[in-house]
């Protein structure tokens, strides 16, 4: 295995008195899809948000695509271009069209000209199947379409890694499929992805590795078949059992 594209070691995070991450190590290889599961409050979202420093880890080291994310010398805004993030609540800019949402960082961070940015943005919307919705505002789009625009906003910057923070949890069940389809096509194009989600079916079909977290620690990890069918830990087994019932 070549050097991992994401290397997070010894990550601790405190929120005041609460110890949310208690020394997490996570290496992700290029083109790998890592699926993170665990009960709410296990720290999986916090871990994800530490990787692009939306949360400041209390201690530890994080390297993404060769960039030391925690070094004070790193231009964090420049580094974040290489790490796309998709949020549970989409967080599209409501005052801009779909196209405007995708173009903003292309122009202001990547420094593209308006024409260049528009070409790239249209291509990104095309990839998520929303080319004809380019001039719609978020309020005029369904939840699934909004989330796909949010994915387009991230991939337009040609990130080396994509982080998904419960991308389908806020969606009506009938809209989940369209978002998962886009994620699957991203995966097939070779994108490195770290996904926090409860979509076990998707994990089984697409993930290279499933990571189970609980109480701020990685309890166990392995290929989906192993984690889902034959977990080594009692806590993992209990969690999987719970999820299955739903």
């Amino acid at each position: 295995m070549t050097a991992p594209i994401v290397a997070a070691h010894g990550i601790h995070k405190h929120f005041g008195q609460v110890h949310v991450l208690k020394g997490v190590d996570l290496d992700v290889a290029e083109r790998e899809l890592v699926f993170v599961i665990g009960p709410s409050g296990s720290g999986k979202s916090t871990l994800l948000r530490c990787l692009n420093r939306l949360e400041e880890p209390s201690s530890g080291s994080i390297t993404v695509a060769g960039i030391d994310m925690l070094s004070p010398k790193t231009d964090i805004n420049h580094a974040r271009q290489h790490i796309g993030m998709v949020f549970q609540s989409f967080n599209l800019y409501p005052h801009m069209t779909a196209l405007g949402n995708v173009m903003l960082a292309l122009r202001k961070v990547a420094g593209k000209s308006r024409a260049e940015a528009e070409t790239i943005a249209r291509a990104a919307l095309e990839r998520v199947g929303l080319a004809e919705r380019a001039h719609h505002r978020p309020a005029e789009l369904s939840g699934g379409q909004q989330q796909r625009v949010a994915i387009a906003r991230a991939i337009a910057l040609e990130p080396r890694v994509m982080l998904f923070d419960e991308p389908t949890s806020a969606l009506d069940p009938e809209l989940v499929g369209s978002v998962l389809a886009v994620m699957r096509s991203l995966r097939e194009s070779g994108m490195t992805m770290i996904v926090v989600s409860h979509e076990m079916g998707f994990a089984r079909a697409a993930a290279d590795r499933v990571v189970f977290m609980d109480h701020g620690l990685i309890v166990e990890q392995g290929p989906p078949a192993q984690i889902f069918e034959n977990p080594a830990h009692e806590r993992t087994r209990a969690f999987i059992g719970q999820i299955r019932q739903h």
Partner: peptide
């Protein structure tokens, strides 16, 4: 303005 707006913008590298 919801916190998520700032986070989304910062995650794309905006200062």
């Amino acid at each position: 303005i919801p916190r998520g707006q700032v986070e989304a913008a910062r995650s794309t590298g905006l200062s």
